[in-house]
Design a protein around this nucleic acid. Structure first.
Lengths: 130, 130
DNA sequence: TATAAGGTCTCCAGCAACTAGAATGTCAAA
DNA sequence: TTTGACATTCTAGTTGCTGGAGACCTTATA
């Protein structure tokens, strides 16, 4: 299977598949005589796995780790759970920060009249000392 | 005021202040004979302004725009409100996505026993077809 | 068989917003 | 005077791709 077909099948851009090959995340099974990357089912599964994990916000390094667990028949679910739990904590932290940001900005937007006059609490909030 | 003192005063790394000067976001008021960047109160205010706006997730380009509004005595609050409102929408969208991600991952983490056995719904979730 | 279209290759560059480090220059105090 | 802290410029790295150039390969159609 050539890279174009693979990309279509796993719903990733060709460039990305090539990139994953370059960084050794998911290498093609082989190369054709003319140098084309050849993939088969095993790699397709891995690429889908990677796409999913990436969509969950796992970094490439985390995906690499997850992938090795996925490939390892002896992996324990504890290892996986630990990585996922860390990610969950990151997400929760980010959510809290985003919430705080949102609330303050929403407050400012509400307070700003949005007319022709220059007075605006949003600008003031950024300008006034801590 | 030299860059080190400025950085301390506005609570930004020296490198960042230099970077902001390089990209023309906040330029020093002058250079000393030996080439040192010289800042005064005006730039300090702007740098604080930039730090705050960045902390709110505004991109450098948005900050640039905000900064020009901030500098312009004739700006209308409507302009500012529009930029802020867009940012607010971005934040809300991101929050929704993060929430969805969080809930699914939390579900998976809960479902994963986290013991020595390899069975793990987190891995399965990434591995099974859409 | 020739040719055109489209797929693939490698390599280089760039995105955002810094950050790190090297090599060098300047300044103030002991 | 010499040390040490600070400053300068420059290059390159970070993350995770993405775009383009120029060249080669494959397939279909005329």
């Amino acid at each position: 299977m050539n890279i174009g077909a693979v990309a279509k099948a796993v719903d990733l851009p060709v460039k990305t598949v090539r990139y994953y090959a370059d960084i050794g995340l998911v290498r093609p099974a082989a190369r054709s005589t003319s140098g084309y990357r050849q993939y088969d089912e095993t790699e397709l599964s891995k690429l889908v796995f990677v796409r999913r994990a990436r969509a969950f916000g796992f970094s490439i390094d985390e995906v690499r780790e997850l992938l090795s667990l996925y490939e390892d028949r002896n992996r324990s679910s504890a290892d996986v759970k630990e990585i996922a739990t860390h990610r969950l904590e990151d997400i929760e932290k980010k959510m809290r920060e985003l919430k705080a940001l949102h609330d303050e900005l929403a407050h400012l937007v509400t307070a700003c009249r949005g007319d022709d006059r220059p007075d605006c609490p949003i600008i003031s909030r950024f300008a006034t000392p801590v």
